[in-house]
Nucleic acid binder design. Structure first.
Length: 932
DNA sequence: GCAAGGTC
């Protein structure tokens, strides 16, 4: 490198840009290339003069983002914290292992440079990457002068202008991306951990996941994408076929046949249709009232953006968007097509379109067409029409090198290259021209019309066989001409549901609602398949799996539209505000994370909705150590034993409350709570006495019949050891621990509560419910000594023997009467998927909606009301149909017209069939032909 | 084991 002048480190977002800009700036004079630490990112060297200042230019690149945002180590393990903590857990940016070599190159080169010029793509992500590069380079050389080159295309004039007019990098743009990254990470990780741990062991869902560890991920892009699929599916399920009628007319003459369509289209009222039809039959003479001739143009498509490429490859070749992008990337790497990730569908006026066409003249299939295009006499050329999108970074996808097919290409490489070339040639061609004739006739006052088209000039259609423009001839007619129709029929028809979403439809939905970017949409679609949320059939159409549907249904039942694109739209608006400087990054982060955390906490409180939705499709699992039980509780305090994890409130397998360490099974610290607790919720109040704090107070509700009369059923309690009432109730009622009392740790909150249970031997001298406990010398019930309150003879185990408060059980199963209304109840057998064979009592009164499971009647765990429909089963009505589908019906709703599918006696409700296979014996949600 | 965004 020459010794005079300053040394400038230039960094581009990708190797291809570093190469292109180096070529342009050096004018291929004295350009030297050497390897960097990374095999992909070479370093170009040349001399250049910036505003009179001689410069030794070093030009290298990164590969997209150099850094990743992640949680601090303390929060990385799934069980290390409550997922709710992830909304404020510390995060940091760092260079991942596979980018370390690029980092080293930057550091080494930066040390010997005076200037750093950033040539990252000129969008928000590019600006953010620019600051990542700045961070790495200035850490190695703090004296660097930082400059930004702004360019919108890799064109000589633009690049020279950019380097002569260097500007400052835009922090607002980078901030917007920082905010987006942080929000995505926090929401994604918290919800993913929450719903995975809630459900993966609670239900049998891993039988169809190829033995892979199932992760029920949530993401602000993947979930709305799933939402589109599910919503369409519900729309189809909710569709009720309706009969309609239409009048059709045809006329055969010597010149040919014309088919006339009824001006009214079709009518749903049969009587009305018949009346009109009879009028036509009585006076069938048709009179031609209008003959219209028009020239019609069919325009070629806009220049090719990424989404259009994906959609068309899916439609024309049935290639998945993910595969399309893989093949396109390889064609790009080989230099055959331009950069494949672009939103732009508009060619810059500076692009030499003719040169691109010229390259294709020799091709055996479309070469002749290319020659015609270039021939001014043929008049085929027309400058392309743009579609109004421009990302200012890349041109539309177009061919960059001629190929008649390479030996290493697969069929998909050939097809995709051909599509890019033909699409480009079509774009610069004139539209097809057709002559359209419309004939209108009148029969007994009813209007009918027929339309025919003749293609006059095919133009672009000659090179674009993927599109057709069907032409159909109709015979000539003149105004006032009269004829008797050859046929005049009243035909029945039936409305059909819309089809399942195709991949092209899905991409359109995502594009319209701003879900993902051109470079990531295919990833989100693939994620639905990878996560077993949806399947794709042979015709490239998507069906939600039971898993995907249940998740969307669960959140929908909570009233949260997390599966809708709204959240992303709000984030996009916030990002725009940050990038324009009208809101600060901190402000946006504060507001949206606060809102999302509130939403998360509420969702967790309503997790029963998710569980109910899952229970519709999946069997409950008896797996021990359900992570739901272990990890989704609310935090009560930091574990004093392991001092690493939080202690959370949760239930054990038998439904008894406890406060256990999230570090289980490594840490077995546990506080068992009284067995009489029916409800427990961690509040935001903290204890003023117990240390180390904070120890959050728990709002308890006790079962009245299981506690002595002088205790209140509601109690705001502390498990830190200071709460006498809780201690007493624990002693009176016992706990839900399965361990024998002698081997257990303290069953009541004491100052020793953070001792591991397994470390407790039979001699542990704590406030355990043992005879040795001096505090039990006086029975709390009868005030006598000699026995504990647990064993007080005056207290039968009322909880076990108590009558269920809502039902009066008399002798014999068949003589139960409803305490709610007094009417007799009958014993019936459930026939739903999840409770088949289970017996329940159902009140016979039409006005009363009470039922109770027989097994609950005996163990006192309660009954629940349900909404009675015409053919009700004891399945609690769960609003599954509310607002879903165009008419507000779900596929198994209790709406009377849709009906509950089977009656309590197992009789199928007539007229309803499985949408998937047509079998009348079940609905689609339990169809054996359906996937997961 | 978690997101989405760059890109080889």
């Amino acid at each position: 490198m020459a010794g005079r002048g300053i040394t400038v480190l230039n960094v581009a977002e990708k190797p291809s840009v570093a190469k292109s800009v180096s070529n342009i700036l050096s004018r291929n004079q004295g350009l030297r290339v050497r390897d960097g630490r990374s095999r992909y990112n070479r370093i170009f060297e040349f001399n250049y003069t910036i505003r009179g200042q001689p410069c030794n230019m070093l030009f290298t690149s990164v590969i997209g983002h150099l850094m990743e945002l992640e949680f601090d180590d303390r929060y990385r393990k799934w069980h290390s914290c409550d997922p709710a903590d992830l909304f404020q857990a510390p995060v940091h940016k760092s260079v991942p292992e596979d980018k370390k070599d690029i980092k080293r190159t930057l550091e080494e080169e930066a040390r010997r440079c005076q200037w750093l010029v950033l040539w990252l793509d000129c969008d928000r992500e590019g600006e953010n990457i620019a600051f990542e590069v700045v961070d790495v380079c200035t850490a190695a050389n703090p004296r660097l002068t930082i400059k930004r080159a702004r360019f919108s295309a890799l064109i000589d004039r633009e690049i020279h202008q950019a380097v002569q007019n260097l500007v400052e990098p835009n922090k607002w743009f980078a901030d917007a991306v920082d905010a987006r990254q942080e929000i995505d990470l926090r929401i994604g990780a918290s919800f993913t951990r929450f719903q995975t741990m809630l459900m993966k062991d609670a239900f049998v869902i891993d039988t169809v996941t190829d033995g892979r560890n199932i992760v029920l991920s949530y993401g602000p892009c993947q979930f709305p994408t799933l939402g589109f699929v599910v919503e369409r599916y519900w729309e189809i399920q909710a569709h009720e076929p309706e009969n309609f009628w239409s009048i059709n007319c045809s006329h055969r003459s010597e010149e040919g046949v014309a088919t006339f369509n009824w001006g009214r289209g079709h009518l749903f009222d049969y009587t009305y249709a018949v009346i009109i039809y009879e009028m036509c039959i009585e006076e069938p003479t048709a009179t031609v009232t209008n003959v219209r001739q028009q020239e019609k143009l069919k325009y070629p498509p806009h220049p090719l953006s990424t989404i259009e490429l994906e959609k068309r490859a899916s439609r024309y070749f049935r290639m998945s968007s993910e595969h399309t992008m893989k093949v396109a990337e390889e064609l790009y790497q080989g230099g055959f097509i331009s950069y494949p990730r672009t939103e732009t569908d508009n060619f810059s006026s500076r692009t030499d379109l003719h040169a691109i066409v010229q390259e294709q003249q020799g091709h055996p299939e479309w070469g002749t067409y290319a020659q015609r295009l270039l021939d001014p006499g043929a008049g085929l050329w027309r400058n392309p029409r743009g579609g109004g999108h421009d990302d200012k970074a890349h041109p539309p996808i177009h061919p960059t090198k001629f190929s008649a097919g390479e030996s290493g290409w697969s069929q998909d490489h050939r097809r995709l290259y051909e599509l890019v070339v033909r699409h480009f040639l079509a774009c610069v061609s004139k539209p097809a021209v057709g002559a359209e004739t419309t004939v209108e006739i009148d029969i007994a006052g009813e209007l009918f019309s027929s339309c025919g088209r003749v293609i006059l000039e095919k133009n672009y259609l000659d090179v674009y066989p993927y599109e057709s423009w069907g032409g159909s001839m109709i015979p000539p007619y003149t105004i006032d001409q009269q004829f008797i129709p050859t046929t005049l029929t009243l035909d029945p028809g039936v409305t059909r549901p819309p089809p399942l979403l195709s991949e092209a439809d899905l991409l359109s939905c995502m594009d319209k609602e701003g879900i993902g970017t051109d470079a990531t949409m295919h990833d989100h679609i693939k994620k639905l398949l990878d996560r077993f949320y949806a399947t794709k059939d042979a015709s490239m159409r998507f069906t939600p799996t039971n898993l995907g549907e249940a998740l969307v249904m669960g959140y929908d039942d909570m009233g949260y539209k997390l599966w809708k694109p709204y959240l992303r739209a709000v984030m996009e608006r916030d990002m725009k505000s940050v990038s324009e400087g009208t809101k600060s990054k901190a402000e946006v982060l504060d507001t949206s994370l606060q809102q999302m955390k509130a939403c998360f906490l509420d969702a967790r409180l309503n997790k029963v909705k998710l569980l109910e939705a899952m229970a519709i499709f999946f069997e409950r699992s008896n797996r021990v150590g359900s992570e739901e039980q272990n990890a989704t509780g609310e935090v009560v305090r930091r574990c004093g034993l392991c001092q690493e994890s939080d202690m959370v409130l949760k239930k054990n397998r038998d439904g008894n409350f406890m406060v256990g360490c999230l570090g289980y099974p490594q840490c077995r610290s546990v506080v068992w709570l009284p067995g009489s607790v029916s409800e427990a919720v961690v509040t935001t109040n903290t204890c003023n006495n117990c240390t180390p704090g904070p120890v959050y107070l728990i709002q308890f509700k006790f079962r009245q019949l299981e506690i002595p009369p002088n205790y209140d059923v509601n109690h705001l309690g502390c498990i830190g050891g200071c709460d006498e009432i809780l201690t007493q109730l624990t002693e009176i009622c016992g706990t839900g621990s399965r361990m024998p009392a002698r081997a257990r740790g303290p069953t009541a909150p004491t100052s020793n509560t953070n001792q591991p249970a397994r470390a407790r031997g039979p001699t542990a001298s704590t406030s355990n419910a043992n005879h040795t406990n001096p505090r039990q010398a006086v029975c709390l019930h009868c005030q006598e000594t000699g026995h504990s309150s647990n064993e007080c003879p005056s207290q039968t185990r009322r909880s076990r023997n108590a009558q269920y408060p809502g039902m009066n059980q008399q002798s014999g199963e068949s003589s139960v009467s409803c305490s709610s209304c007094g009417a007799p109840c009958v014993l019936r057998t459930a026939n739903t998927a999840n409770n088949r064979g289970r017996k329940f009592y159902s009140c016979q009164s039409q006005e009363c909606n009470f039922f109770v499971w027989e097994d609950n009647l005996n163990n006192g765990s309660g009954g629940r009301s349900f909404t009675r429909s015409n053919s009700s089963t004891p399945t609690p009505s769960r609003g599954r149909n509310g607002g879903r589908g165009p008419r507000g019906r779900g596929r198994n709703g209790s709406n009377s017209s849709n009906g509950t599918f089977v009656t309590a006696t197992g009789d199928p409700v007539s007229g309803r069939r499985c949408y998937t296979c047509g079998d009348p014996s079940h609905f689609a949600n339990v169809c054996p032909n359906r996937g997961l």
